[in-house]
Computed example of a mutant assay.
Amino acid sequence: MKFSIGGSLKLAFRPWVEGLENVPADGPAILASNHLSFSDSFFLPAVLDRKVTFIAKAEYFTTPGVKGKLTAAFFKGVGQLPVDRSGVRGAGDAAIRAGIEVVEKGGLFGIYPEGTRSPDGRLYRGKPGGLARVALATGAPVIPVAMIDTEKIQPPGKVVPKLMRPGIRIGRPLDFSRYHGMEGDRFILRSVTDEVMYEIMKLSGQEYVDIYATAAKRRIADAEKAAKAERAELEKAQKAAQAELEKAQKAEKSAQEERSA
């Protein structure tokens, strides 16, 4: 199913790729990519000969009915791995365990260090909890990846994608084996993550923002909420002013009618 989906995507969108030679023909590796669109997890596997396993919400695989079964089959076909988000720390620990398992079996594990899609096309600070821990626990090389223009194909909230050519740049593998077994050191985790994000920034050409994307989304949501409240207050004031104007006009008209009488 991966090849049929991948072939259809390549035929329809004709993605261009640079650096395919940096992905090993076999053996374990971690693909660390920026995240611009829901479709990133489909375009990257489509251009590779090997299967890439990403983490996906377990809900995608357990929805009942025909639609749920089709969704589950699709996500399995493109290499998505279900992760149960229940528990004290949610998906974090489960995703790390799943990633380690994929890598230890000699597979390619795909991960988005930002943790969520970019809200505005810029590159945000990487979260050290997932990528770095999997890399240090396994000793596998980390391959930085830059998705180009996928946010233009399928912006957040859009269901029907726009037909245009996305790009994928794959960088040289980064070796963090010198830190193997040090995944409990938060300073090492931060250093490893920042090094990977720097390479992704160079590949993608994105502006880098040194805050988490989740925080940026909250700021944007708060700003939109404040703007909406301000518009509502303005509309309320305009309606009040209009009502006062109509009241004054009515009073003036009544006064004129009295003078005429």
Results as ranks from 00 to 15, higher is better:
Asp84Pro: 08
Lys67Val: 01
Ala95His: 03
Val103Trp: 06
Ala58Trp: 13
Glu104Leu: 10
Lys57Asn: 09
Lys67Asp: 00
Val78Asn: 10
Glu104Thr: 04
Gly106Asp: 05
Lys76Ile: 02
Ala98Pro: 08
Gly87Tyr: 12
Ile55Phe: 07
Gly87Trp: 14
Leu81Ile: 00
Ser118Ala: 04
Glu101Phe: 13
Ala72Ile: 06
Thr116Ala: 07
Ala91Leu: 03
Ala94Arg: 07
Gly115Ile: 12
Thr62Lys: 13
Glu59Pro: 14
Val103Tyr: 11
Gly90Arg: 00
Ala58Ile: 12
Val83Phe: 05
Glu104Val: 01
Val66Ser: 10
Asp93Ala: 12
Lys105Tyr: 01
Gly110Ala: 13
Val103Met: 08
Leu108His: 03
Val103Glu: 11
Leu81Gly: 00
Ile111Phe: 12
Glu114Leu: 00
Phe74Asn: 03
Tyr112Phe: 15
Glu114His: 00
Ala91Gly: 07
Ala98Tyr: 07
Val83Arg: 01
Ala95Gln: 02
Leu81Tyr: 11
Ser86Leu: 00
Gly90Trp: 00
Asp120Met: 04
Pro119Thr: 15
Ala56Val: 03
Leu81Asp: 04
Leu70Asp: 03
Pro113Leu: 09
Pro82Ala: 00
Asp93Leu: 08
Pro113His: 11
Arg89Ser: 09
Arg89Lys: 07
Val102Lys: 10
Glu104Arg: 15
Ala95Ser: 15
Val66Met: 14
Val78Phe: 11
Ala58Arg: 14
Ile55His: 02
Ala91Arg: 02
Ile96Leu: 06
Thr63Tyr: 05
Ile55Leu: 12
Glu104Met: 08
Phe109Cys: 06
Tyr60Lys: 01
Ile100Glu: 14
Leu108Asp: 08
Ile100Phe: 02
Glu101Lys: 15
Val102Leu: 07
Gly68Ser: 09
Gly107Ala: 12
Gly92Val: 15
Pro119His: 15
Gly115Lys: 11
Gly77Ile: 10
Lys57Glu: 12
Pro64Ser: 06
Thr62Tyr: 10
Phe75Ser: 04
Thr71Arg: 10
Tyr112Asp: 07
Pro113Phe: 11
Ala91Pro: 09
Asp93Tyr: 11
Gly107Leu: 11
Gly99Tyr: 04
Glu101His: 15
Lys57Ile: 03
Phe61Gly: 00
Ile100Trp: 08
Gly68Thr: 02
Phe109Val: 01
Leu108Ile: 06
Tyr112Glu: 08
Ala72Asn: 02
Leu108Asn: 01
Pro113Glu: 12
Glu104Tyr: 03
Pro64Ala: 05
Gln80Pro: 12
Phe61Asn: 01
Thr116Phe: 07
Gly68Tyr: 09
Lys67Thr: 00
Pro64Leu: 03
Glu101Thr: 15
Pro113Tyr: 09
Val66Tyr: 13
Thr116Asp: 09
Phe61Asp: 04
Gly110His: 11
Thr62Asn: 14
Phe61Arg: 00
Pro64Thr: 01
Gly79Ile: 06
Tyr112Ser: 05
Val102Glu: 14
Asp84Arg: 02
Val88Leu: 10
Ala72Pro: 09
Gly99Pro: 11
Glu114Gln: 02
Glu101Trp: 13
Ala98Thr: 09
Thr116Gln: 06
Thr71Cys: 02
Gln80Arg: 05
Asp93Thr: 10
Ile55Asp: 05
Ala72Ser: 13
Lys76Cys: 03
Val83Asp: 05
Thr116Tyr: 06
Lys57Ala: 08
Gly99Ile: 05
Pro82Leu: 02
Ala72His: 06
Arg117His: 10
Ser86Lys: 04
